[in-house]
Design a protein around this nucleic acid. Sequence first.
DNA 1: TGCCCGATTAACT
DNA 2: GTTAATCGGGCAA
Length: 190
Amino acid sequence: MTILAPVDRLPRDFFARPTLEVAPDLLGKVFFVNGLNAVIVETEAYLPDDPASHSFCGKTVRNAAMFHPPGTLYVYRSYGVHFCVNVATEGEGIGAAVLIRGVMPLPDSVAAFQVRRGLKITQKQLSNGPGKLCQAFGITLEQNYVDGTTSAEIGFFNAAIHVKNVEQTPRIGISKNTEKPWRFVAKSLL
DNA sequence: TGCCCGATTAACT
DNA sequence: GTTAATCGGGCAA
């Protein structure tokens, strides 16, 4: 796997598209948080009319970030223990988002990930889950509502990374609308 | 106010 | 494969 430095930032227009296009397109992009870089390798799409989506019952205090402009981060606490991070998509007031389920740290960020996650954790296991990657990056509710297209601390970048095999499968850990194949996994990078 | 449950993880057996 | 840990939103009373 050859990984080069990030080049350009994804603009709001990138996120202002159908969620089912944004989710697979995010694979292979670089997620930058507080000086750390990782390649996105797994995402899930959550649509406004999707019973599995937090936005399905309308806007609440908890999910309000999903209704912010495309590119806004939506962070929530899962099972009272972990944090998960999403990016709002489509348009302001829509309530759609992509859940970032897995990333692969770039070589320059592996050490920092290990400090937060544990020194003996392998590179692959450092951030191969939505809660793990938030712990690795240090993402908490403080990052809820952050604009990923303008923030100096957090952003998404194009990189010279080619995603080779994208697998589309049903989403993980949900009880409604389980048959929809809206999970996207990058099996290999070049 | 109280109860139930979840877009999870890791430490068990 | 199983299960405890642990917290806030949503709904019923």
